[in-house]
Amino acid sequence: MASYKLLLLPGDGIGPEVMAEAEKLIAWFNAQGIARFETERGLVGGSAYDAHGKAISESDMALAMASDAVLFGAVGGPKWDKVPYEVRPEAGLLRLRKDLGLFANLRPAICYPALADASSLKREVVEGLDILIVRELTGGVYFGEPKTITDLGNGQKRGIDTQVYETYEIERISRVAFELARTRKKKVSSAEKRNVMKTGVLWNEVVTRVHAQEYPDVQLEHVLADNCAMQLVRWPKQYDVIVTDNLFGDV
Rank of each mutant, 00 (worst) to 15 (best):
L129R: 15
Y239S: 10
A116N: 13
C111P: 11
T183H: 14
G139T: 04
D12N: 01
E169D: 11
V233C: 11
F178T: 07
E58C: 06
V176L: 09
A66V: 01
A74H: 04
W203R: 10
A212F: 03
A212D: 05
A66P: 05
Y112E: 13
E205D: 15
I149A: 15
A225V: 15
E171P: 09
H211Y: 04
M65C: 07
A69G: 09
L43F: 05
Y4C: 01
I173A: 11
Y142K: 01
A55F: 00
N246Y: 04
G140L: 08
V164Y: 15
G153C: 10
H222N: 14
L202E: 10
K98P: 03
G155M: 10
A55Q: 02
V83T: 13
I160N: 13
D60G: 06
K187L: 12
R97L: 04
V196K: 00
A20N: 08
A177Q: 08
L132T: 06
E23D: 02
D151P: 06
I131W: 13
D250A: 03
T148G: 11
L6D: 00
M19I: 05
L93G: 00
R135D: 02
M19T: 05
E21H: 08
G46K: 05
V206S: 04
E21S: 06
Q219F: 11
N30A: 03
P146I: 03
R123L: 08
M19N: 02
N246K: 04
E192D: 15
K237W: 14
R184K: 12
S59C: 05
L96F: 01
V223S: 09
S174K: 09
E205H: 12
V243L: 10
R36W: 02
V83I: 14
A69Y: 01
E38H: 08
G155Q: 13
K54I: 10
S47G: 07
G33D: 06
G139F: 05
K24L: 07
I170D: 12
G153I: 11
A2Y: 13
A116T: 15
G92F: 03
G77C: 03
L25H: 01
D117G: 14
R95V: 05
H211D: 03
V206I: 10
E145Q: 15
E145S: 13
P89D: 03
A66M: 07
V241S: 08
A20R: 06
V70G: 00
S57A: 12
K5E: 09
Y215C: 04
H52S: 10
D161Y: 07
G92T: 03
T244G: 07
A74E: 02
V201D: 07
K187R: 12
E221Y: 12
D217N: 04
R41V: 06
